[in-house]
Amino acid sequence: MEPGPYDIGLVEGSISTPEEAERIVQVRKECRFLVTIGACATSGGIQALKNWADVEEYKRIVYASPQYIDTLDTASPVAAFVLVDFELRGCPVNKYQLVEVITALIAGRRPQIATSPVCLECKRAGNVCVMVAEGTPCLGPITHAGCGALCPTYGRGCYSCFGPSESAAAEALCAHCEKTGTSKPTIVRMLRSFNGYLEPFKQVGDKYERQAVNN
C-alpha cells in the first residue's frame, strides 16, 4: 500500500486470512474516512457461511493439499476489527448509493441512504405482493432498501442481497413464513446467505437451526 494519509478509504471483501486482519488495521490508520462497500466487507458475505462450519473439513473438500491453505476460522465484517465510518450494503452495491456516499463525505455531510426496508420500495413501485398474493417467502419486509425491490418486481421473493434493515423484525417474519408452509431448514437457509452473519439474521437463523435439529 502506498503510504497515506487518504481522505476516503473504500474497503471491499471480508476479513478471512491472518494477513488481512493485520492489513486492515494499517488501512484504518491511513484513512480519514473508512467506508466498507458491499456485503462481504459489511457482513462477511457469502464466505461467512464457513463461520458455522468446520473449516478443516471445508479445506479438505476443496483442496487436495489442505496444509497449504492459510485461513482464519471465520470470515468477518471489517467492523469486527476496526472502526468503520460508513457501511454501504448490497451484493452488488447500488452505484448511485456509492456516488452519494463519496459526494456526502467530500461535502462534509451525512450520506442520505435510506435504512427502510425493501418492502417500502416495493409498495412504491406498485408491485403486487408476492407473499400475500402467491405465498412466496420474501425477505423484503426485513431487508435494507437499495435495490429498488428488484426481485419482487420480477415475481420472486427477496433473498436479501442488502442484509437486514434497521429494526428488522426477523423473528416475526420467519414465524409468518413458517405458518404459511416454509420449513425450518428452508428458513435457516433463507437467512444464511449473503448477509447471514449480521444480526438479527444470525440470531434468528441459529434459533431455527436448533429447532430443526431438535425436531
Partner: peptide, 14 residues
C-alpha cells in the same frame, strides 16, 4: 487470493 470454499458451502443448499 483468500480461499473461498464455494464448493464446500454449496453442500446442503437447495
Amino acid at each position: 487470493e483468500p480461499p473461498r470454499f464455494y464448493e464446500a458451502f454449496l453442500r446442503g443448499r437447495s
